[in-house]
Amino acid sequence: MTVTCVNCDDFGWVCENHPERPWDGPRACTCGGAGAPCPACNAAGEGEVPRMPEGFRVEVDKDGWRH
């Protein structure tokens, strides 16, 4: 498999603290920082949302809180 984005290894998400490291995968940053959309390949335009990781889903409980 050929990787086209060297920041996120085509995952689409990087470490918020270290945006040059993927948030998931074999080279994932292990600092514990939050994930952030990759600025190189997953930057969303105004009014758009970034591409979400595979398997991501939003859950809303009975009180309307998102998890």
Rank of each mutant, 00 (worst) to 15 (best):
M1V: 12
T2W: 08
T2S: 10
T2P: 15
V3R: 15
T4N: 05
T4L: 06
V6T: 09
V6C: 12
V6N: 10
N7P: 11
N7T: 05
C8F: 15
D10N: 14
F11P: 04
C15Y: 13
E16S: 15
N17I: 00
N17H: 13
H18W: 10
E20W: 14
R21E: 11
P22V: 05
D24W: 00
D24L: 03
P26D: 06
P26R: 12
P26H: 09
R27D: 11
C29I: 00
C29L: 06
C29K: 12
T30C: 09
T30V: 08
T30Q: 13
G32P: 12
G32E: 00
G33K: 08
G33P: 10
G33A: 14
G35L: 03
A36Q: 09
C38F: 09
P39S: 06
C41K: 04
C41H: 08
C41T: 02
N42F: 05
A44I: 01
A44P: 08
G45H: 02
G45M: 02
E46Y: 01
E46A: 05
E48M: 07
E48A: 07
V49M: 09
V49W: 11
P50Q: 01
P50A: 03
P50N: 04
P50Y: 03
R51V: 01
R51Y: 02
R51L: 01
P53A: 01
P53K: 01
P53W: 02
P53D: 00
E54A: 07
E54D: 06
E54F: 00
E54K: 05
E54V: 00
G55F: 05
F56W: 11
R57L: 04
V58K: 07
V58Q: 06
V58P: 03
D61F: 06
K62S: 13
K62H: 13
D63N: 14
W65Q: 14
W65H: 15
R66P: 06
H67Q: 05
